[in-house]
């Protein structure tokens, strides 16, 4: 759905932030992980067309970002910003969510329906008239997610969606990602929470200093502990526990580990 070809980018001449990246994205849900400052946010802003590559090209569907405006691309690709303060600009929760759908040409009834559905998914359906500035950070982030989901684009990128979320918040986001996957959409998420990556994504890409140094199924990627350590990423807690208990295999969920211990155990459990 996205083809990235030899893309480089720099904010200031002389320091390249994205270095000659070539990647293809299909429908597999994808996590992008890596060190602070590795260039993850910059990379997705390039996909979104908000920044233009200094060389190379990106093809979304069948249009090249170099030849299209972000506004046109908005029909196909949605991005939830890392900092909610950068995204929110309307005076009520409902207006904020309606902005995108109306602008990409959904008719008012459909837009309203999509907006209300999206707000229900994040649990803000009872706060339609609240000024977004009075929301706590976690709710602001959920509002930003709702504003993008309501646009019903085929590609959805989330930049650190779990910031400030408690267990329930993460659960909601997990369900949202599942439902988007079921609708055959490409979900791409930048995230530092490895436990969340392990549970939710089929594919994982590791960024380091402007390059994609590792790309594969999530299980394969978490098996590469040396490369991960170099990219300053830790395996998920459950993987670590399995490792310290002396297992060779890579565990991604609690259930996997518990079952394995149960069958291995000397004691009656």
């Amino acid at each position: 759905m996205i083809k990235v070809k030899d893309v480089s980018f720099s904010y200031q001449a002389g320091t390249e932030i994205i270095k000659d990246i070539t990647l293809h994205f299909d429908q597999r849900s994808t996590a992008i992980i890596g060190q602070n400052g590795a260039g993850k946010t910059t990379f997705v802003k390039l996909l979104k067309g908000l920044l233009k590559p200094s060389s190379g090209d990106i093809i979304i569907g069948d249009s090249s970002v170099n030849e299209t405006t972000p506004a046109t691309l908005a029909k196909q690709i949605g991005l939830v910003f890392q900092n909610p303060n950068d995204q929110i600009f309307k005076r009520s929760v409902l207006e904020e969510v309606l902005f995108g759908p109306l602008n990409i040409g959904q008719n008012p009834e459909l837009a309203k329906e999509n907006a209300l559905n999206a707000l229900k998914m994040v649990g803000l359906e009872n706060r339609l008239e609240v000024n977004p500035q009075d929301l706590s950070l976690s709710d602001k982030k959920l509002l930003c997610i709702a504003s993008i989901i309501a646009m019903d684009t085929n590609i959805i990128i989330l930049d650190e969606p779990t910031i400030a979320q408690d267990h329930l918040g993460k659960q909601k986001i997990k369900e949202i990602i599942q439902s988007l996957k079921e609708k055959q959409k490409l979900v791409m998420t930048i995230i530092h929470d490895m436990d969340f990556v392990a549970e939710n994504f089929e594919r994982t890409i590791v960024f380091q200093q402007g390059k994609a140094i590792l790309d594969g199924s999530t299980r394969e990627v978490f098996a590469e502990s040396d490369i991960l350590a170099a990219a300053r990423v830790e395996p998920p807690s459950i993987t670590q526990l399995g490792y310290w208990l002396g297992y060779k295999q890579v565990f991604l969920t609690e259930k996997e580990l518990i079952e394995t211990i149960k069958t291995d155990s000397k004691i009656a459990l």
Partner: peptide, 13 residues
């Protein structure tokens, strides 16, 4: 107040 919410895993450690 949640000082490591945006840090990479080793950074938060």
């Amino acid at each position: 107040d949640e000082p490591t919410s945006q840090l990479d895993p080793q950074g938060s450690e």
